[in-house]
Design a binder for these strands. Structure first.
Lengths: 169, 169
DNA sequence: TGGACCATGTAACTGGTTACATGATTCA
DNA sequence: TGAATCATGTAACCAGTTACATGGTCCA
């Protein structure tokens, strides 16, 4: 998976500006993907050069011009190849787990803070994702819904386990 | 978290060669961290230059020479700072989730393959981790054990959810 | 008046990977 | 005989981030 495929996926549904793409990433992909403007803008230029997408400049009043990108047939073809190819292996790199792994060398207060912090962050992500799911539920296509439910299931497992260690009852 | 901290953590317990470090990563960290020889060897040289670790060259019969690295007081100090600092946010980038998110545009057979594949891979990681946990259980310090149990809990949640979709019973 | 939002873009940097080079030993 | 294991290291590359530059509008 590279960012090109992700952008093509978004553009399969409707046209986007670079700015919109970033916001969509934050809103819907934040739990398994992310990219900065520093990646998005150069990638869009490159993809336009490759004729995978086409650009239309829109003048706006009171706001800067924006570039709206639309997928081309060549872009659709590439995205379709991506979609039916096997998934790359996922990248998971966790400093939390590293701290935990070496936690027996740290003091108890530090470890409790670490665990509480991690649990709280996961809880926030859970709540955020759950709220989105409830809100969109009826309109969500099945696999999109499943992706969110799977995210929730993993978060819930994490939270439950950490909670059982922090507040054994 | 950078690779330096991880190496210092390992060297806190005993001395390692670069080759050993790589194997330890694969054996115990593979589910939340990874690094290649191309990163490990230059990092070790750099850390030696910074006096965080010291090198001893060992001649071996029938095998190439090896460089054994030992942590210095300056290295211990840096590791201690790492250990008591808050954890960086984790990096999770999943092509599987991306495929799932866009899955409603793919055909059913592709999606079933995707799900079965992912489930199988997670199951293998689960089995591998569980086996290590059972094998070492009595010797494991508590937080190290917890890190493995948390990994298992997350894998189990994933597997269970995907299974419920593939084989509803 | 200062911060948030809208909007695009570049340059410098970083943290890695992959592939290559070397070479002996052991095992099937 | 050829693959796996032991062991170190470098060069080329790549995908990404951060910080900076620009500048208008809207709202408190």
């Amino acid at each position: 998976m590279n960012i090109q495929d992700v952008i093509l996926g978004l553009l399969s549904k409707r046209s986007f500006s670079g700015y919109d793409i970033k916001h969509h990433f934050e809103e819907y992909f934040s739990f398994f993907f992310d990219a900065s403007f520093g990646t998005i803008y150069p990638t869009l230029s490159k993809m336009e050069g490759l004729k995978l997408i086409s650009k239309e400049s829109i003048r706006q009043e009171g706001k800067p011009d924006k570039n709206i990108y639309t997928i081309t047939p060549a872009g659709s073809e590439q995205f379709n190849r991506y979609l039916h190819a096997p998934a790359d292996k996922e990248i998971f790199r966790s400093d939390f787990f590293m701290h935990l792994y070496f936690g027996d060398m740290a003091d108890a207060a530090t470890m409790e803070t670490l665990l509480r912090q991690a649990m709280q962050e996961k809880q926030e992500m859970y709540d955020d994702l759950e709220q989105k799911l409830n809100q969109l539920d009826a309109f969500l296509p099945p696999y999109q819904k499943l992706s969110m439910e799977l995210g929730l299931a993993q978060y819930a497992a994490f939270i439950q386990k950490v909670k059982s260690v922090l507040d054994p009852s």
